[in-house]
Design a protein around this nucleic acid. Structure first.
Ligand SMILES: [Mn+2]
Ligand SMILES: [Mn+2]
Ligand SMILES: [Zn+2]
Ligand SMILES: [Zn+2]
Lengths: 161, 161
DNA sequence: AACAAAAAGTAGACAGAGTCCATTTTTTGA
DNA sequence: TCAAAAAATGGACTCTGTCTACTTTTTGTT
């Protein structure tokens, strides 16, 4: 009895090899890109099309089984930790992304001072900064932050501390 | 004595027709895309290359003269209101973007509960929801929000209320 | 005013991330 | 087991944005 298969059935999502592998991949590496996840799936079941990955990620996000975050300058990241409305802290220089508990409470800043008549459904908070290891590097080499923080650094992003 | 020209000089940025027009364009339409701004500049001085626009926006952002925000699923938006660390409230369905004063204070959630050793330099907050006019539309037509919130709606995004 | 050096602008090729679409394969549920 | 519904495939395509070689404009100094 495959655990993930039952989860999918419970949500009325047809069970396919691709989706099962993807679900496991997301669980195993929080904050990974679609591309990285596709590779992980391939390692497990041999092959997947790019489209299958995007479709599956899309429906899983829709159904609330996984979460998508889209930080500026980075492709979208996916994670299995849902429902707790946590936030993210991202290193400008290497892209490392870590979870941050919400400061305010269960559903954080959901009450914007003046909501202008909008019906707000999400308060997305991203903290930007420099991670410990990049801080160290900067101090040692004397490289300035601008240099260390070049966008292409995101390409070889680590996932989790 | 052109106002904007002096601003540029003060920041040590060489004064060009393109940058002057761009600066005015950004001032005139908060939360516009590079593309929209390029059109505005063309209307004023006849022509600009795409690259000049991206370069100019880049240096203006670097020098802190303007601000860039990059909401998920949307091209980058630019605005002249800087230094007050305000946040944004974006309609999922039509992309309308409005400013929101910071709830907490001067520099808001800058203190994440557990900062994991990062040196945090910015707390970016985006509130997502449905704007008044889209709410109305949804209620009238009975169209569900998923329908109303299709991504392509962003292409013809309004800028400000 | 004239001139050289530095900085910007131009046009067009190119890249990354994601979407569209016609067709084939798999899953579902009767 | 079978038909209908849903997914997967793969390849073209779109949208933002970047790179590059080259030309034009600014600047700041004679
Ligand atoms: Mn997370
Ligand atoms: Mn704003
Ligand atoms: Zn780092
Ligand atoms: Zn709206």
């Amino acid at each position: 009895m495959l655990e993930s298969a039952n989860i999918l059935r419970k949500y009325g999502i047809p069970v396919t090899a691709q989706r099962l592998a993807l679900l496991r991949a997301v669980g195993a590496r929080p904050h990974a890109t679609a591309d990285v996840l596709a590779e992980a799936v391939r390692a497990e079941i041999g092959a997947v099309s790019k489209q299958a990955v995007y479709n599956a990620l899309g429906t899983l996000v829709e159904k609330g089984l996984i979460r998508r975050i889209q930080p500026a300058g980075s492709p979208a990241l996916y994670e299995g930790r849902v429902g707790d409305n946590h936030h993210h802290l991202i290193c400008r220089s290497c892209g490392m992304t870590v979870d941050v508990a919400c400061v305010v409470g269960e559903r954080p800043c959901l009450n914007a001072a003046d909501h202008s008549g909008f019906r707000i459904d999400e308060a997305e908070v991203i903290f930007w900064g420099t991670c410990p290891s990049c801080l160290e590097k900067t101090e040692k080499t004397g490289a300035d932050q601008a240099e260390a923080g070049k966008p292409q650094d995101f390409l070889t992003r680590p996932t989790t501390p």
